[in-house]
Lab assay of single mutants.
Amino acid sequence: HSHMSHTQVIELERKFSHQKYLSAPERAHLAKNLKLTETQVKIWFQNRRYKTKRKQLSSEL
C-alpha cells in the first residue's frame, strides 16, 4: 500500500469535485501528472465515491 502525498490528494480531490467518474484516458493522464499508477487513481476514486455515498445515506437518516 503506497502513501499519497498531501499534494496528490489535493489534486485528486479537485478533480473529483468536477467529475466523479474518469474515463480511462483521463485516468491515465491524471496518474501521469501526479506520478501515481492508474490503479491508484482508480481505487482512490472508487473509495471516494463510496465515502460520498455513505455520507449522503447517513445524512438522510
Rank of each mutant, 00 (worst) to 15 (best):
S2I: 11
H3D: 07
H3S: 08
H3T: 09
M4G: 00
M4T: 03
M4P: 05
S5Q: 03
S5L: 05
H6L: 14
H6Q: 08
H6P: 13
T7N: 13
T7M: 11
T7K: 14
T7R: 10
Q8N: 02
V9C: 12
V9L: 12
I10N: 08
I10T: 11
I10Y: 12
I10V: 10
I10W: 09
E11K: 07
E11V: 08
E11S: 05
E11I: 13
E11Q: 11
E11T: 06
L12P: 02
L12D: 01
L12V: 02
E13L: 09
E13G: 02
E13K: 06
E13H: 04
E13T: 05
E13P: 01
R14T: 05
K15M: 14
K15Q: 08
F16S: 03
F16D: 00
S17I: 06
S17N: 08
H18I: 07
H18R: 09
Q19W: 07
Q19G: 05
Q19C: 15
Q19V: 05
K20E: 06
Y21P: 02
Y21T: 06
Y21A: 02
L22I: 06
L22P: 06
L22V: 05
S23L: 04
S23I: 01
A24I: 11
A24N: 08
A24K: 12
A24G: 10
P25F: 11
P25M: 13
E26R: 02
R27H: 02
R27V: 12
R27N: 04
R27K: 04
A28G: 05
A28T: 07
A28F: 08
A28V: 08
A28Q: 10
H29R: 12
H29W: 13
H29C: 11
L30Q: 02
A31N: 03
A31H: 01
A31T: 02
A31D: 01
K32W: 08
K32I: 11
N33Q: 14
N33K: 09
L34S: 02
L34W: 02
K35R: 05
K35V: 04
K35S: 12
L36Y: 02
L36F: 01
L36M: 08
L36S: 00
L36W: 03
T37D: 03
T37A: 02
E38K: 03
E38S: 04
T39C: 12
T39E: 14
T39P: 06
Q40C: 07
Q40V: 06
Q40G: 03
Q40S: 06
K42N: 10
K42I: 07
I43Y: 09
I43V: 10
W44V: 00
W44D: 00
W44F: 03
F45Q: 02
F45W: 07
F45A: 00
F45V: 01
Q46G: 04
Q46P: 01
N47C: 15
R48L: 04
R49N: 03
R49H: 05
R49W: 04
Y50F: 08
Y50T: 09
K51A: 14
K51V: 06
T52L: 14
T52I: 07
K53M: 12
K53N: 12
R54L: 14
R54W: 08
R54N: 13
K55H: 09
K55N: 15
K55S: 13
Q56H: 11
Q56S: 10
Q56F: 11
L57D: 14
L57T: 10
S58H: 06
S58P: 12
S59V: 10
S59Y: 09
S59G: 10
S59H: 13
S59N: 13
S59I: 08
S59F: 05
E60Q: 15
E60G: 14
L61M: 14
L61C: 15
L61G: 09
L61S: 13
L61I: 10
L61R: 05
L61Q: 08
